[in-house]
Amino acid sequence: MPNQTTTQENPAAGVTPAAPWRIHAVSVLPDYRLAVTFRDGSCGVIDCSSVQTTDRPGIFGPLADPEFFHAVRIELGVLTWPNGADLDPAWIHENISTEKTWSVPF
């Protein structure tokens, strides 16, 4: 599958998540990475590549499939996938504010 880049705005009609740590845009990058921009304008890269090697992925297991990983969406400022898996935007914001790249510990 070719690397695709998608940018998503919050699709929830009439709802504007105002917290500065809410995610405003996401782009899928190669190698299981996501570029995110927050409501406060800060941005960084989330490295999700460890989902491919973890022995206990739980709900995140389907993310190891590249097609499924590319199905990431923003719902109310949160990164979500079709199976209900999500990443806490406050946690991401905290880690990206000190380092511009953060590796998710799946």
Rank of each mutant, 00 (worst) to 15 (best):
Asn10Val: 12
Phe69Asn: 01
Ala85His: 07
Asp65Lys: 04
Ser49Gly: 00
Gln52Leu: 12
Asn3Lys: 12
Pro57Trp: 01
Ser97Asn: 13
Ala13Arg: 03
Trp21Asn: 11
Trp91Gly: 07
Asn95His: 15
Asp31Gly: 03
Cys43Trp: 04
Trp21Tyr: 06
Val15Pro: 00
Leu87Cys: 07
Asp86Tyr: 10
Ala19Ile: 02
Leu79Trp: 12
Val26Gln: 02
His24Ser: 09
Asn83Leu: 04
Pro62Arg: 02
Ala12Gly: 03
Gln4Pro: 04
Glu9Thr: 11
Ser97Gly: 10
Arg39Gly: 00
Thr5Gln: 14
Ala18Glu: 12
Pro17Ser: 05
Ala19Arg: 05
Arg39Pro: 00
Gly44Gln: 05
Arg73Lys: 11
Val72Phe: 05
Gly58Gln: 00
Ala64Phe: 02
Val78Pro: 05
Thr80Met: 13
Thr37Met: 12
His93Pro: 00
Ala25Tyr: 02
Gln8Glu: 15
Cys48His: 09
Ser42Glu: 12
Ala90Trp: 12
Val15Gly: 02
Ile92Ala: 06
Asn3Trp: 14
Val15Ala: 01
Arg56Val: 05
Thr7Cys: 06
His70Val: 14
Thr101Phe: 09
Asn10Pro: 02
Thr54Cys: 04
Leu87Gln: 00
Pro17Lys: 08
Val72Asn: 09
Thr7Tyr: 10
Asp65His: 02
Val51Ser: 03
Thr53Asp: 00
Asp40Trp: 08
Lys100Ile: 15
Trp21Arg: 03
Ala25Gln: 10
Asp55Asn: 07
Trp81Glu: 11
Gly41Phe: 11
Phe106Ala: 03
Val104His: 04
Asp65Ile: 07
Pro57Val: 03
Met1Gly: 15
Asp55Tyr: 05
Leu87Val: 12
Arg56Glu: 06
Glu99Ile: 14
Gln52Asp: 01
Gly41Tyr: 04
Thr53Val: 05
Pro11Phe: 15
Leu76Tyr: 14
Gly77Arg: 13
Ala25Gly: 05
Glu99Pro: 08
Pro20Ser: 10
Trp102Met: 11
Gly77Thr: 11
Pro30Ala: 14
Gln52Arg: 08
Ile74Asp: 03
Cys43Gly: 08
Asn10Arg: 04
Gly77Asp: 04
Tyr32Ser: 02
Asn83Thr: 06
Ile23Asp: 01
His93Ala: 14
Tyr32Phe: 13
Ser103Ala: 14
Lys100Glu: 15
Val104Trp: 13
Glu99Trp: 08
Pro62Asp: 03
Arg22Ser: 10
Thr6Trp: 15
Trp21Gln: 04
Val72Ala: 08
Ile96Gly: 03
Gly14Cys: 06
Gly41Ser: 08
Pro17Thr: 10
Trp21His: 14
Ile23Glu: 01
Ser50Phe: 06
Arg39Ala: 04
Ser49Ile: 11
Pro89Ala: 10
Val45Trp: 08
Met1Arg: 13
Phe68Lys: 08
Leu63Ala: 01
Pro62Ile: 09
Ala71Cys: 10
Phe68Ile: 15
